[in-house]
C-alpha cells in the first residue's frame, strides 16, 4: 500500500521536466507544515491567560508531531531517516565555511549545517514541551519556585531564533544552489544530481 504510493510519488517526480528525484516523503512534508502551523499558534497565543488553553493544545500538538518525527527518524525512511543526516558539527562548520565562499556542494537530503539546526530544533522542541507541561501542571512532581517557567520562556525564544536561522538558511541555500527547497518541502521532489556539484554561483562568476 504505502510502497505503491511511494512508487507513484517517485514516478510523479520523474514526470517533471527535467526529471526530479523523490526526496521528502508525505510524512515529512505533512509533519513539517503542521509543525509550522502548531508552533506559530502556540507562539502567537503565548501570553494571555484567556488564550492559555489554545496555547497548551497547540503545544501538545507540537509534542505529538515531534514524537512522531523521532519515531520516523529511527525507521528506514530514506532521506528522512536520522542515518541520512547525521549530527556532525565539524562537517557543518566546514559546510558553512565553503558556503561563505560560494563553493559548498549541493546535498539532496539535509546538508550538514541544516542537520545541526534540525537536531537543535528537535531538542528545543522537546525541552519546550516538557517544561511547558511542568509549568502548566504546577511543577507536577517537582516543587518549583519559578525556574521551570524561566526555562520554558528562554528555550522557546531560543527555538524561535533557530527557526529564523533555519528560514534564512533555506532561502540562502535555495539561491546558492538554484534549488527551490521550499517547493521541495511541499511536493517532495528535488532536482537530482549524481555527481558532486559545485555551486552554480561560482561558475557564473
Amino acid at each position: 500500500m504505502t510502497e505503491d504510493r511511494a512508487k507513484e510519488a517517485a514516478l510523479n517526480c520523474l514526470k517533471d521536466e527535467p526529471p526530479q528525484k523523490y526526496v521528502w516523503d508525505a510524512f515529512v512534508r505533512v509533519f513539517h507544515w503542521s509543525l509550522v502551523v502548531a508552533f506559530s499558534i502556540a507562539f502567537y497565543y503565548r501570553e494571555s491567560e484567556w488564550d492559555r488553553l489554545i496555547h497548551v493544545y497547540a503545544g501538545y500538538t507540537v509534542a505529538g508531531l515531534i514524537a512522531a518525527r523521532i519515531v520516523w527518524g529511527f525507521m528506514k525512511t530514506g532521506y528522512a531517516s536520522f542515518r541520512a543526516f547525521p549530527l556532525n558539527p565539524l562537517l557543518a562548520v566546514r559546510y558553512l565555511w565553503l558556503t561563505a565562499q560560494g563553493r559548498s556542494r549541493r546535498y539532496i537530503g539535509h546538508n550538514p549545517a541544516g542537520s545541526v539546526v534540525i537536531y537543535a530544533m528537535l531538542f528545543c522542541g522537546i525541552t519546550t514541551v516538557v517544561s511547558g507541561f511542568l509549568v502548566y501542571n504546577d511543577g507536577w512532581l517537582i516543587d518549583d519556585p519559578g525556574y521551570i517557567k524561566s526555562l520554558h520562556y528562554y528555550v522557546s525564544w531560543l527555538w524561535l531564533i533557530l527557526v529564523v536561522m533555519h528560514i534564512i538558511a533555506v532561502i540562502t541555500e535555495s539561491i546558492l544552489h538554484k534549488d527551490n527547497l521550499i517547493w521541495a518541502m511541499i511536493t517532495g521532489c528535488k532536482r537530482s544530481s549524481t555527481k558532486l556539484e559545485k555551486s552554480y554561483w561560482k561558475k557564473e562568476i
Partner: peptide, 18 residues
Amino acid sequence: HIVTGKPIRPLAPSANPN
C-alpha cells in the same frame, strides 16, 4: 483558573513565601 481549571498557588505572602 477559570479558563483552564488548573490550581493557582495562593497570592498572600503569608501562605506562599515565593
